[in-house]
Simulated scan of single mutants.
Amino acid sequence: MNRRTLLAAALLASLTALNAHAADPLKVAFVYVGPVGDAGWTYAHEQGRLAMEKALGGKVATTYVENVPEGADAERVIRKLAADGNKLVFTTSFGFMNPTEKVAKAFPNVVFEHATGFKVAKNLGVYETRQYEGTYLQGVIAAKMSKSGTIGFVGSFPVPEVIRNINAYTLGAQSVNPAIKTKVVWINSWYDPAKERQAAETLIAQGADVLTQNTDSPATLQVAQEKGKYAFGWDSDMARFAPKAHLTATTNSWGDFYTRTAQSVIAGTWKSAEVHGGLMEGMVKMSPLNAVIPADTAKLFETKKAAIIGGKLKPFQGPLKDQSGAVKVAAGSEMSLADLKGMNWYVQGVEGTIPK
């Protein structure tokens, strides 16, 4: 073999290796706080992962770990995923924020995205939906469907994300009936069907006849149906679990965001950012309305939804007062993003106190 042939062979081998390397898929990992299941928060994220896989095909190789407790165990899981060669890691619960930040510092060449948090770094971004827009619309329907003037909310943890939804639910209802009251029962868990069921039963016993939740199972809906009341799905469409009670659901659609993020990492264009998507961006979607909802209520719902999408209606626009009557947002003003992310107070009409 002459020198020219050897050089050509070496060049071909080099190009082959380079092309093989270029074709390696981006390894992407997801950390889930609950079970993938068939409804709720983690289920919605899993649907987003699957949508990303479908859109990008062989460009990505994904994995996930479910049922990861928030805290020290989360750090162990996140660290292992980064050490295993994943170059993009999505951590999908508020309580994963500090562990994600810590691991991101140790793996500067890995991109981390954290859902619902507020800490960012050069290789750490955050993302969430304006889910409260849909919760506001739930409140509109709840006020129209309620006979008692009292609606209920099954709360998970007393963090700003959940408090925003309680307040938005109340404000939407008050836009129809200013005298309506919201009762809240906290269960201190994102997913615990037994506790969710007990909380729903308590709320109904206290007079609430339309319920919503910030928890992951359909237990609240199932109790509502058993008791002849109404309720809303959460994070995903839960109509099949309680078709008579399920009025609509505020759902999260993560697929496009996950796809765009992976594409930007592959292209080398990813930059840390805070992403907030709502009805306008298609990251929040409302499931089909139950046929039991009267036509005038459905029309009002659609009108208000269109106003939110068009930017004409902001759920947290002033005037807003807290339980004590103190003005928190003046008339003509809109609550800032920083205040929304730190919300730690109830609007007037919500009964009880926020647990410490």
Score class of each variant (00 low, 15 high):
N98D: 15
F257E: 02
N165K: 13
L313D: 02
F241K: 04
G172K: 11
A51P: 00
E201H: 09
K244M: 03
A239H: 13
L7C: 09
S336I: 02
R164T: 01
D216Q: 08
S336T: 14
L313S: 06
A13D: 04
G233K: 06
G134W: 11
G152R: 02
K304A: 09
K147Y: 09
Q198R: 14
A17W: 14
E274Q: 07
A298S: 11
L313M: 12
M1Q: 13
Q198A: 15
E281H: 13
A338I: 03
A17T: 12
G48E: 02
T220F: 04
L56S: 08
P193R: 03
T62V: 12
Y64G: 00
L7H: 06
A208E: 12
N98S: 14
E75Q: 15
L337P: 00
I309L: 10
L221V: 06
D209Q: 09
K299P: 04
V33F: 05
S189V: 03
V89F: 06
K195T: 06
E133M: 08
A291H: 05
F157C: 04
E133P: 07
K271N: 09
A245F: 05
Q138C: 13
P160S: 06
L50D: 02
R79W: 11
N252H: 09
L289V: 04
Q222H: 07
S336Y: 03
G134K: 14
M145V: 12
N2V: 12
W41G: 00
T353I: 05
L247V: 15
N167G: 07
E196T: 09
N188P: 00
A20W: 05
G277F: 08
T91W: 10
S336L: 01
P319E: 10
V154R: 02
L247C: 10
H114F: 09
A273R: 13
T250P: 02
M343V: 14
Y127L: 11
T116C: 02
I293N: 08
E334F: 05
V120S: 02
S336H: 01
T220M: 15
D235G: 01
K181N: 08
T92V: 05
K328R: 15
S175C: 04
A199P: 10
T116E: 07
A245C: 01
K285H: 06
V60K: 03
K299V: 10
A121M: 08
A331L: 10
F107D: 06
S264P: 01
H246Q: 08
V60G: 06
W254T: 05
R197V: 04
V60L: 10
F112P: 09
F153E: 06
T92W: 12
W270K: 14
H45M: 08
Q213R: 09
V275M: 09
A173T: 04
M343R: 12
F153K: 05
T63S: 15
E196Q: 13
M145F: 10
N188V: 03
S333A: 14
L203M: 01
A104P: 00
E281Q: 15
L320K: 03
